[in-house]
Design a protein around this nucleic acid. Structure first.
Length: 457
RNA sequence: GGCGACGUAGCCAAGUGGUCUAAGGCGGGGGUCUGCAAAACCCCUAUUCGGCGGUUCGAAUCCGCCCGUCGCCUCCA
């Protein structure tokens, strides 16, 4: 039985979906810039959650939003004199390419905020009607003190938050913690007609509108980074539960820990500070498997530091994984290796709030089992099958980053053949010299009883 | 200042009351195999879990204090 930690209750509990299909909403990116590895951590974590749910036999409906209307996109649009649609389209394409590069499964829906303006207006009006929101000068604010549970997700009282407020208080707000559902449009900004005049939505309302529309008034999982608990998700709870009168809106709030840029930096990655490693750069330098193994090597709720060196160490581990899946040359039908125990261990680890470090340990034990079986001349197809299946739950591709250069292939083959003749003639000095030179060029040779194998990378 | 996490080998990281003289990865050392390598396999690499006290028959795991680090407190995955 899968257990998940719910941020709202702070407790790890059995995962029981509300219906036949698991409904999962994951906070997606603001489209004002490229994604970084911190985003990748979050999306990989929820990709693994989805894959594991599907492995366990659930149907999963996975929705991830695109925020295409927000202060920063508007700023960018002004400074670059491009339309919001143009900018968001560019970053959506880049996002999808990078997700594919990381082997993250496509969500069932990628709703864009601007496509849900009518729903946001409906919810906003509904909250006004219930006395949970009030319009002022074309803005509409949520009235936090009218919502009794405000602060329950972030586990903070209104008093505590008011005391720590570090932003100048807008005098039109009834309470400093009241937040905008709708903002009156300023000059030269995108705007939509509403009962309160031309304007645009606040940031938080989009997720309420899209999740309620696409997943229903109550759904199973809502994911995102730890930094988005307050105010974003806190406000979403207030909006959604305030509007529908149903609680909880989300069965399991799941939040991943944040990624820092480096050990020495001691600061989380953020785009606005420029303190980040772009996902594109990471993908250019490393295989998807190495990046995924690195991101999954700590529990998803732990904060991490990005480390090239560490990813490189997982590059080697990923290479062992690939090698283990190469067919053994033992006659088929030999003694098969027992696999059931490994499968159970893997499931027990994943059931325990997605303990991916432990699940990875099972994978590495399986690799050893495969290699041992190969050495003994046993039939390892079953173990390899399990390794591939469980690795697949973690979204591993078993592909190396650098595809062997097709053009160079015949020349390498030629050198390897020449070297084989030299070895036969016991001309070892020359043979070794060829091997050394090839090694320096990035071609690794391996002499096996079946002949010499080589690979690039 | 308030709230919440965390501190385990050279590095990363699981484990949260007895099976822990602590998983797994990377790195390092030795061995088997090999013409020599590589890969693979085998063995070794924390009697100890930030420090000091306490609870308990028993603590890395619970409690208290201290030291250090991080996150949130309307930009944020």
């Amino acid at each position: 039985m899968l257990k998940l930690t719910n941020t709202l209750t702070g407790q790890k509990r059995d995962f029981v979906p509300l219906g036949d299909t698991v409904r999962m909403y994951v906070c997606g990116p603001n489209l004002y810039g490229p994604c970084h590895v911190g985003h990748a951590l979050s999306y990989v974590v929820f990709d693994v959650l989805r894959r594991y749910l599907e492995y366990k036999g659930y149907d999963v409906r996975h929705v991830q939003n695109f925020t295409d209307i927000e202060d920063r996109i508007i700023e960018l649009s002004k400074s670059e004199r491009r339309s919001i649609g143009d900018i968001s389209e560019q970053y959506i394409q880049r996002f999808l390419t990078e997700m594919e590069g990381l082997n993250i499964l496509r969500a069932n829906d990628y709703p864009r905020a601007t496509a849900y303006i009518p729903q946001m207006i409906t919810i906003t009006q509904g909250l006004i009607d219930k006395g949970l929101a009030y319009p002022t000068d074309g803005d509409v604010y949520f009235r936090v003190r009218a919502f009794p549970g405000y602060g329950k997700l972030a586990k903070r009282s209104l008093e505590e938050m008011r005391a720590g407020a570090r932003i100048e208080v807008d005098p039109r707000k009834e309470d400093p913690m009241d937040f905008a559902l709708w903002k009156a449009s300023k000059e030269a900004e995108p705007a939509w007609p509403s009962p309160w005049g031309m304007g645009r939505p606040g940031w938080h309302i989009e997720c309420s509108a899209m999740s309620l529309t696409l997943l229903g008034e109550q759904f199973d999982i809502h994911g995102g980074g730890h930094d988005v608990i307050f105010p974003h998700h806190e406000n979403e709870v207030a909006q959604s539960e305030g509007y529908t009168g149903l609680a909880p809106v989300v069965g399991y709030w799941v939040h991943n820990g944040l990624l820092r840029r480096t050990e020495s930096d001691e600061e989380k990655m953020t785009r606005h500070s420029g303190n980040f490693v772009s996902l594109r750069d990471a993908l250019a330098a490393h295989s998807a498997d190495a990046i995924r193994l690195f991101l999954l090597s700590a529990h998803y709720r732990s904060p991490r530091a990005y480390s090239e060196e560490e990813i490189l160490s997982y590059e080697r581990a990923a290479e062992r994984l690939r090698a283990a899946l190469e067919p053994g040359d033992a006659p088929s039908g030999g003694r098969a290796v027992e696999t059931e125990g490994y499968k159970l261990r893997f499931e027990a680890a994943m059931d325990d709030d997605l303990n991916t470090p432990q699940a990875m340990a099972v994978l590495f034990d399986l690799i050893r089992e495969v290699n041992r079986g190969k050495d003994r001349g046993e039939n390892v197809t079953d173990v390899q099958g399990l390794l591939k299946e469980l690795g697949g739950v973690l979204g591993l591709t078993f592909q190396s980053k650098i595809a062997d250069s097709v053009a160079a292939q015949p020349f390498v083959d030629l050198l390897v053949e020449v070297r084989a003749d030299l070895r036969k003639a016991r001309q070892f000095a020359l043979a070794d010299s060829i091997r050394d030179r090839l090694t320096k060029l990035g071609v690794a040779l391996e002499d096996t009883p079946q002949g010499t194998k080589w690979k690039m990378g």
